[in-house]
Design a binder for these strands. Structure first.
Length: 507
DNA sequence: TTTTGAGTTGTTCGA
DNA sequence: GTCGAACAACTCAAA
C-alpha cells in the first residue's frame, strides 16, 4: 500500500511540533478540480477536500476544448482565464504546491490523474449550465462506479437550485419576489465567509506548461485586452470599491464616465472572488441605498443562474416561446456596423468600441446597445448574445442570456414592450458631458457637448471647427430611431398577437 | 379558487 | 421648459 508522510495540521490550525503520521493515499489524498472557482480563500469544495484529506490536495485544472472552442469561444476571456490560472499557480507555489494543468476531456483526464497520484477521489464546485450539469453528472457517476469519491459543492452562488422557491415550491420567474425571498432567507440563513484551506506540500504529478491563447484558439488575435487578475488583486479591488464608490452606487452606477460600478464581474465569473465575500463586504459597509442596491445586483446574478437551471431552453430561444415568432429582419450590414461601433449613434459606438478595446462594457451601456440592436436594428437578440460572449471577459451564459432576453423583452421579468431606449437621450442623461463618448471616439473629441450625442445635427461650420466631417470621418445614423421604434413595436405586437398578423402589415 | 397588485433600468406627446 | 398621462395586455406571486 502506498503511503506518504506529512505534517499533521491540528483542527485549530496550529502546526503541532513536527508530529508526523502515516496516511494511506487511497483513503486520504483528494483532487480538487478547479473550474470557475480560481481562488484559495473561501472555496467551499477546496476547504472540504483539504479537511477530508488532512491537507493533502492535488490542485488540478483541465482545459476542456468543448468549452474553450465551443459555441461561446472567446480569445479575450481565455486570456483572462490564463492570467487567473497563473495567479492561482503563484498562490499555490507560495505554499510549496503548484497547479497541475491538463488538456483533454475531463473524465478520462481525471481518471488518469487519480491513477497517477493514487488519490481517492475528486471534489469540485458546482456549475449550473446545461453542459456542465450533464458533464458533471456523468463524471460523478463514473468515478463512483470506479470506486472513487466524487463530490460537488455549492460555491458559485449564495442560493442555488431550489433554495429560493415560491410558496408552492416552484422556481421564481420574476425578480422582485425572488429578491424579497432571497433577502429573507439570507437574514435567517446567512452565507458565511471562510478563509484559507489548510494545505500541505505533497509531491504532485508534473503539470503541462501554461498554454498561450493561440495554443488553445489558433485564430485568436495576437494582442488581446487584459484585465488585472488574481485573488489578492480581486480582494483589493473589492476593498477599494466598498470603501469608495459603494456608498453612491445607487446613482453613480448609471453614469458612464464615472467609475461608479464595482468592475468585479470578471472575478465573479471565474470565481477569483466569491459572492459571499462580496455580500459580506457590502454588509460590513455603512448601511444605505448604495450597499443595498449592489447586493441587489448580486441577487440578480443568483436569479439568472437559477432561471437557467430551471429553464434551460432559454439558452436556445426565447424564455417566453411566443417571442420565437418574431420575424427579425437581421440585416448583416447593420449588424456589422453595430459590432464595430459605426452606427452613427455615439453612445452606441463608444460602448461597442469599449467592448472591443477592454473586453468589458459599462452596465448601462450594455442595456443601451442591446436595446439598439433589437429595437432599432431589428436584429435577433441571440446575435448580440453571441457577440457579447465572444468579447466580454466576464461573459457568463446565465447572466448574459438573462440580460439579453430582458433587453429584447423576451425573457423573465420582461420590460414593457414600449420601453425602447432612445440612444440620444440615454447619452444625454447618462453621459451629460460626453466624456465617455469622447474617450472611445477620438474623431468626436472636439465636438461641442451640445452636439456630442447627435453629431449629424451639427451645422457645417461647426463640423469644420470640430475637425470632423459627419458622413466621412464619422457615420451619419445608419437608421432613423423614430422609424425603427415604430417598426419594432409592430414586430413585437404581431409576435404576441399572432391572430392579428394578417391585418398588420409593415416592412 | 378567485382576486388583486405589481412588474430594474423609458419615451413621447400634448397641455 | 415642465409635467402628467398614455403606452397592451399579460403573467406572476401572494393574499
Amino acid at each position: 500500500m502506498l503511503v506518504i508522510l506529512h505534517h499533521r495540521v491540528s483542527p485549530t490550525g496550529y502546526n503541532e511540533s513536527n508530529e508526523t503520521f502515516i496516511v494511506t493515499i487511497e483513503r486520504c489524498m483528494l483532487i480538487h478540480w478547479f473550474r470557475r472557482d480560481l481562488r484559495l480563500r473561501d472555496n467551499t469544495a477546496l476547504l472540504k477536500a483539504a479537511e477530508a484529506a488532512g491537507g493533502a490536495v492535488v490542485p488540478v485544472f483541465i482545459f476542456d476544448d468543448a468549452i474553450i472552442r465551443g459555441r461561446f469561444a472567446s480569445p479575450a476571456r481565455t486570456q483572462f482565464l490564463l492570467d487567473s490560472l497563473a495567479a492561482l499557480d503563484a498562490e499555490l507555489r507560495a505554499l510549496g504546491l503548484y497547479l497541475v494543468l491538463r488538456r483533454g476531456e475531463p473524465l478520462p483526464t481525471l481518471i488518469r490523474l487519480l491513477r497517477e497520484t493514487g488519490a481517492g477521489g475528486v471534489m469540485w464546485n458546482r456549475d449550473y449550465t446545461p453542459y456542465a450539469i450533464q458533464r458533471d453528472s456523468v463524471i460523478k457517476r463514473e468515478l463512483r462506479a470506479a470506486g472513487y469519491r466524487a463530490e460537488s459543492c455549492k460555491d458559485a452562488v449564495i442560493f442555488e437550485m431550489n433554495e429560493i422557491a415560491t410558496a408552492e415550491g416552484r422556481p421564481y420567474t420574476v425578480y422582485t419576489p425572488y429578491a424579497k425571498r432571497w433577502r429573507a432567507r439570507f437574514a435567517s440563513d446567512p452565507a458565511h465567509v471562510q478563509g484559507m484551506p489548510r494545505l500541505v506540500a505533497i509531491p504532485l504529478p508534473a503539470s503541462e506548461p501554461l498554454p498561450a491563447v493561440t495554443d488553445l484558439l489558433p485564430d485568436a488575435p495576437v494582442t488581446l485586452p487584459r484585465f488585472p487578475t488574481g485573488e489578492t488583486v480581486a480582494l483589493d479591488a473589492l476593498e477599494r470599491f466598498v470603501r469608495g464608490p459603494l456608498a453612491d452606487y445607487a446613482t453613480a452606477r448609471d453614469l458612464l464616465a464615472v467609475p461608479g460600478t464595482s468592475r468585479l464581474s470578471p472575478y465573479l465569473r471565474f470565481g477569483v472572488i466569491s459572492p459571499r465575500q462580496c455580500v459580506a463586504a457590502a454588509r460590513a459597509a455603512p448601511p444605505g441605498p448604495g450597499p443595498e442596491s449592489w447586493i441587489g445586483e448580486l441577487i440578480w446574478r443568483d436569479f439568472y443562474v437559477q432561471v437557467l437551471y430551471h429553464f434551460p431552453h432559454a439558452l436556445r430561444g426565447s424564455f417566453k416561446p411566443a417571442f420565437d415568432r418574431i420575424a427579425w429582419p437581421n440585416d448583416p450590414e447593420l449588424f456589422a456596423a453595430w459590432q464595430t461601433g459605426q452606427t452613427g449613434y455615439p453612445i452606441v459606438d463608444a460602448a461597442m468600441r469599449q467592448l472591443q478595446q477592454e473586453g468589458w462594457m459599462h452596465n448601462r451601456a450594455r442595456m443601451i446597445v442591446a436595446s439598439f440592436l433589437t429595437k432599432d436594428l431589428l436584429i435577433d437578440w441571440r446575435w448580440g448574445e453571441r457577440h457579447f460572449m465572444r468579447w466580454l471577459i466576464d461573459g457568463d451564459p446565465a447572466a448574459n442570456n438573462g440580460g439579453w432576453q430582458w433587453a429584447a423583452g423576451t425573457g423573465t421579468d420582461a420590460q414593457p414592450y414600449f420601453r425602447i431606449f432612445n440612444p440620444v437621450s440615454q447619452g444625454q442623461k447618462f453621459d451629460p458631458d460626453g466624456v465617455y463618448v469622447r474617450r472611445y471616439l477620438p474623431e468626436l473629441a472636439r465636438v461641442p457637448t451640445r452636439y456630442i450625442h447627435a453629431p449629424h445635427t451639427m451645422p457645417g461650420a461647426e463640423q469644420i471647427r470640430a475637425g470632423v466631417q459627419i458622413g466621412r470621418d464619422y457615420p451619419t445614423p445608419i437608421v432613423d430611431h423614430a422609424t425603427q421604434r415604430a417598426r419594432a413595436l409592430a414586430l413585437y405586437r404581431t409576435a404576441s398577437r399572432p391572430n392579428d398578423a394578417a391585418t398588420e402589415q409593415y416592412a
